[in-house]
Design a protein around this nucleic acid. Structure first.
Length: 674
DNA sequence: TTGCCTCGAGATCA
DNA sequence: CTCGAGGCAA
């Protein structure tokens, strides 16, 4: 070996280490003793240490981690990482398959690929010229974080693909997880060292990936398993999902050992039952089975809904349940005054976490459960996360158990409670008199998506309101450093930072401001639409309900909430003082002002192929027209796709021009060209 | 809703 | 050393 020149020797060592690593981690069948691997590994380290020019990012030596990062960088997913629709029982599974058949316009079920759904963290790996180029978290689906350095340390992730003829660039998606054994062993070691332990393998995996120091990640027993392609080449690529998995496998990318092709509902159910049976004996946690339509052409014709493909579904295992005791009920008052009963529970470990609270939503739910104080209850972690009280175990009820009383007045400010007809929720009528509502309003106002006031967290708000320093969001703008200093955990530095953050929030956007006001039913999207449509707060605050309804996604209910908000004296005063405090925003060009379609009102209905209805409306509004959801005699034109129903009929009755998608595109490009 | 990581800064102790 | 805030993931 030593008769080789260093470059050749390094190359040679890398090839061998890569092969041995693959045998060890992926195939689980080492062909050489650990000692031989270690020897070669150290030799390579030595070579790289003495010959800087021989260092490589994807050398096996990089598996031990490198220099810590200052922060994670945000990266874009060219192909969005969507989530999957869930099926919680056999009926929903059957309904999914029926939808697939209907949409494909065929009688028989297309071939499906099934595999267990690993309970870990989803990741995207980009391979460029056969080498790992980038690894990223899922994030919000369109942007995630670059965790390449951490992922490089995971033995089962190939740094270089095996074989030849890999595409120039492609993306592998999969799950990074910790095996049950790895998790137990790690915790055992941590306990011995007196360090803190993880509560479940999933959190252990997620936590390990979030380390800025990849050396720490390297010491964690993480495993990778891939389940699909993301960005994929257009030529020289298989036609089916299954073949892609086999191709991945041939390149050394680990795939599920349990993947199978299935052809019927019965086969899917049988597969599900079989894996469910196996679940406890598997070396890793799973939370269901994923079924995907195998053929890419079929996938393509099925397409997507909102944030999930129509060609795949996750059939979840029944949520884990546990029995515990209700120790009390707390009535929480939210920022709109809504009073929510929350069950306080004796802590129980269920589905990997300790649950001690569960929302009961409203008094109807309490009645439905027939819940009484101190009852024994069944708790479930529903869907993914939110704990639910499923039922009461009546046999264990104490004879004298007290009924749950709805509060007659607000538990915080003692204002009267109202329950409007048709609504299940109780509401405190205190408004700004109620400290709980003020705290909620401030928290919302300061939140990231609203005015984004840094450093104004829960505890500080609590103190500000309790001390009487803040009675409404407007009071934030007259706070001084001196007023803040007496608060807990508030030194000169923090106080200065907070005042500066509040000051900075004066410069904002109309949409953020509107959203921050916390008007009922006005979320980010609606606030954005309103800002675009009206451009300034005065016109908006004086707009009639009818005028408001003309805005996309504002219906009669939202319009009424808006009207009610802006006609209330307190709110007018609030807006005035906020503006007086110097809150301002750059003028918004409001789109309805001009454009070739000015004065027209369009309605979009039916299914469109090349774009969503919302996108079509967006495009229409950009040309100056308004869009509405229902047809009236004021409607100028209706864009109708296949499946249009009553709206199309009404348009025909009223003799309103109807165009189809093709005409629409022609028309739009002409007008946009002007 | 819970659990995890990271950062800045206040609190505490030597 | 500990706490609070903030961000992220399921």
């Amino acid at each position: 070996m030593s008769d080789l020149q260093p470059p050749e020797e390094a190359k040679h060592l890398r090839a061998r280490l890569q092969q041995w690593g693959h045998e060890y981690y992926v195939l689980d069948r080492p062909s050489v003793p650990d000692s031989e691997y270690d020897l070669a590994f150290r030799r390579l380290q030595q070579l790289e240490a003495t010959h800087a020019e021989l260092r490589e990012e994807n050398s096996p030596t990089q598996r031990v981690g490198g220099e810590p990062l200052a922060s994670f960088v945000s990266v874009e997913h060219k192909v969005p990482m969507l989530s999957l629709d869930n099926a919680f029982d056999g009926d929903e599974m059957a309904a999914f398959l029926k939808r697939v058949c209907d949409r494909l316009d065929q009688q028989s079920i297309p071939e499906l690929v099934a595999e267990p759904k690993l309970d870990g963290v989803a990741v995207s790996l980009m391979y460029e010229k056969g080498e790992l180029a980038r690894a990223a978290t899922r994030g919000d689906g369109s942007r995630g974080e670059d965790i390449t350095k951490n992922v490089r340390t995971i033995g089962t992730v190939p740094l270089k693909l095996q074989g030849k003829s890999h595409p120039e660039l492609f993306e592998v998606r999969g799950e990074i997880y910790m095996s049950r054994q790895g998790f137990e062993d790690f915790n055992e070691q941590a306990r011995l060292r007196g360090e803190k332990t993880f509560v479940n393998p999933r959190n252990a995996a997620a936590g390990s990936l979030r380390q800025l120091d990849s050396k720490i990640t390297a010491a964690r027993p993480l495993v990778f398993c891939c389940y699909s392609a993301g960005l994929q080449p257009e030529v020289n690529w298989p036609d089916t999902h299954w073949d892609v998995l086999q191709l991945f496998l041939s390149w050394g990318l680990p795939i599920s050992a349990h993947a199978e092709r299935l052809n019927s509902l019965e086969a899917c159910d049988a597969y599900y039952d079989r894996v469910a049976e196996l679940r406890d004996t598997l070396p890793f946690d799973i939370d269901g089975i994923v079924f995907k339509v195998n053929d890419f052409a079929a996938q393509q014709s099925l397409g997507f809904v909102a944030r999930a493909p129509r060609w795949a579904i996750a059939r979840k295992f029944p949520a884990q349940e546990a029995i515990t005791k209700l120790t009390g009920i707390e009535f929480q008052v939210g920022r709109t005054g809504a009073i929510t009963p929350v069950a306080r529970l004796e802590p129980v470990f269920v589905g990997g976490v300790t649950v001690s609270n569960a929302t009961l939503h409203n008094m109807d739910e309490v009645a439905r459960l027939e819940l009484r104080m101190q009852d024994s209850v069944v708790i479930r972690r529903a869907g993914d996360v939110i704990p639910q009280v499923v039922s009461v175990i009546l046999e264990r009820r104490d004879q004298n158990a007290e009924h749950v009383q709805a509060p007659a007045d607000c538990p915080v400010c003692h204002s009267p409670v109202e329950r409007s007809s048709g609504e299940a929720t109780l509401r405190c009528t205190g408004g700004l008199v109620c400290p709980a509502q003020v705290k909620g309003a401030v928290r919302h106002f300061a939140s990231r998506r609203a005015l984004d006031i840094d450093g104004l967290g829960e505890k500080i708000i609590e103190q500000l309101v309790n001390e009487g320093l803040v009675r409404s969001v407007a009071d934030l703008y007259s706070l001084t450093v001196e007023q803040l200093l007496p608060l807990e955990r508030m030194g000169a530095k923090s106080a200065g930072n907070l005042i500066a953050a509040i000051d900075a929030s004066r410069q904002t956007t109309l949409a953020k401001f509107l959203y921050g006001l916390g008007i009922r039913e006005v979320g980010e999207a609606t606030a954005e639409s309103l800002a675009k449509e009206f451009g300034d707060i005065h016109t908006l605050s004086e707009a009639s309900e009818e005028r408001l309804t003309e805005v996309g996604d504002v219906g009669p209910i939202v319009a009424e909430h808006l009207r009610r908000f802006f006609t209330a004296e307190v709110n007018q005063a609030l807006v005035r003082s906020l503006l007086d405090a110097g809150i301002s925003w750059p003028a918004v060009a409001h789109l309805a002002a001009e454009g070739p379609l000015q004065g027209q009102t369009w309605v979009v209905t039916g299914r469109l192929d090349s774009l969503s209805r919302d996108q079509a409306e967006e495009r229409i509004r950009a040309l100056g027209a308004k869009t509405a959801k229902s047809v009236s005699k004021k409607t100028s034109t209706i864009l109708a796709g296949p499946g249009a129903g009553s709206k199309l009929k009404k348009a025909q009755d009223l003799a309103i021009p109807v165009i189809d998608e093709t005409e629409f595109h022609t028309m739009m490009s002409e007008l946009e060209g002007e």
